[in-house]
Design a protein around this nucleic acid. Structure first.
Lengths: 255, 255
DNA sequence: CGACACCTTGAAGAGGTTCAAGAAATGTGG
DNA sequence: CCACATTTCTTGAACCTCTTCAAGGTGTCG
């Protein structure tokens, strides 16, 4: 597949439709397998449809929410790509994740009723706004939704365990390999190629996420390319040898 | 305060009582401010009392649960001290947290109905077992409990953001300083000294948590001691200059 | 087309790791 | 209760990975 072709196929936009004609309803959203509990009764589905109050679009570079802002809703990504990052008073910051279509943002805000990180769109995006009091209300009626919310939060906790493992005990090349594999895996789950991807973030943002400097990210990309594992042209990456990358990630023994 | 005195005062055991005589009820547990939602009505409190099915004691070194085990309950620590750790197939492992009285464990298991980390007692411990289906059931009736559960999960997510920041962008001495300050802060919230503490974990476990080798942990302790910030005798640590430690953690500018 | 943001690569340097040895504490069995 | 085995901790020295600093290249957008 050529680089041009990738650029066209991998725009994270589900079946384009004219916005105004869509009733804001999860029941006929084509992302519902990602956002919503499965196997709801007709009746429950109607209740859950009341979850999404409205939509909001966020331009590339803009914040969906920022640290300190009042929390009152979770956000489901319809289209676009985000990063979340925590910032310390002294200006240090750490990217805590990258989010794509079908994923939920804002869980950090529940504890203190204020967001504790920034969510920045890395490309023009659209999100569904789900007021949290409404989520709790409907959760009390629909057990499947309740459990779904719990699972989403638990999944985020487990994901962060994985990042801690990565940050705490992997070398630079292992981290980058794990990062790439995770990205393509999630893209694949959304129907995209499992070998070609376009990075929506800068080297610096990747570095922040992986706990390394942008120069090291760049060097490691080049190293992988030299070894024939991947092909890199700026933000366009093709995975040539996924097996070798996987071996790298699980390479504690041969060391 | 002498080292001897510390050893006596800082055993994480709330008012000792004879186990058999206690009705397993949260309403008269002296940890309820930590585990339970506040301001419940009499009626709701009775319902919530049905949460804890039973108790379980775990000897030092034993696992409360292990990776792969079927998940069916959350655990509230009554006494003792735990670590949680994830292990990769290739034998690498990463301590993801240390838990003390009043904290909740097991949230990782909800997504896949299997635990995704190990919980190991670092000292003899006792936990309350709260079957998760019962939590969900009562949550549907008692809004305050529902919200409390959400807050606990959100708090864990935010905590892990902090660890990612630490692992991703701090130097060894900053990490250890942050770790010590976090520990004393939590101990203080439980009525212990804000300056003297006993580490319940080895240097290796601290290192795993902080993403550094045990030798580096040891060296950094020694460095802090040389600088007069702390006093260290094996696992007994006194904080002499908390302000300096705090400055260390927020020290991006002077660098 | 020019300005700006982003990426790549090199060389020197620092922080942390690895390997090794010895000391201190802890636990066990006689 | 003491002696011995084991685990845990400390410290030194050499080494290595990643960072820092620097310069030049590439791509993008007004």
């Amino acid at each position: 597949m050529t680089i041009k072709a990738i650029m066209h196929t991998q725009h994270l936009t589900p079946t384009p439709q004219i916005k105004d004609t869509i009733k804001v309803a999860c029941s006929n959203c084509n992302l519902r397998e990602l956002c919503m509990p499965m196997g709801l009764s007709q009746d429950d589905m109607l209740k859950v449809d009341g979850l999404v109050a409205s939509r909001r679009s966020v331009k590339r570079g803009q914040a969906l929410f920022q640290t300190g802002e009042k929390f009152n809703a979770l956000f489901a990504i319809r289209t676009g790509f985000f990063k979340t990052a925590v910032t310390t008073p002294d200006g240090r910051d750490q990217v805590t994740g990258f989010q794509m279509a079908g994923e939920i943002m804002g869980l950090d805000g529940i504890v203190n009723e204020r967001h504790s990180c920034d969510a920045i769109a890395l490309e023009d995006a659209e999100v569904c706004i789900m007021p949290f009091d409404r989520i709790e209300e409907i959760s009390r009626e629909v057990g499947a939704l309740q459990h779904h919310v719990h699972k989403i939060m638990s999944r985020e906790i487990v994901r962060e365990h994985g990042v801690m493992l990565l940050l705490g005990s992997m070398r630079a090349d292992e981290r980058l390999a794990a990062f790439l594999l995770n990205l393509v895996q999630r893209l694949q789950a959304r129907g995209f190629s499992s070998s070609a991807l376009i990075l929506r973030m800068t080297r610096e943002e990747i570095g922040s996420y992986l706990g390394m400097k942008l120069e090291t990210v760049s060097r490691t990309f080049s190293k992988f390319a030299d070894e024939g594992l991947i092909e890199v042209h700026q933000r366009q990456v093709s995975i040539l040898n996924a097996e070798a990358l996987k071996r790298l990630v699980n390479a504690q023994a041969c060391h």
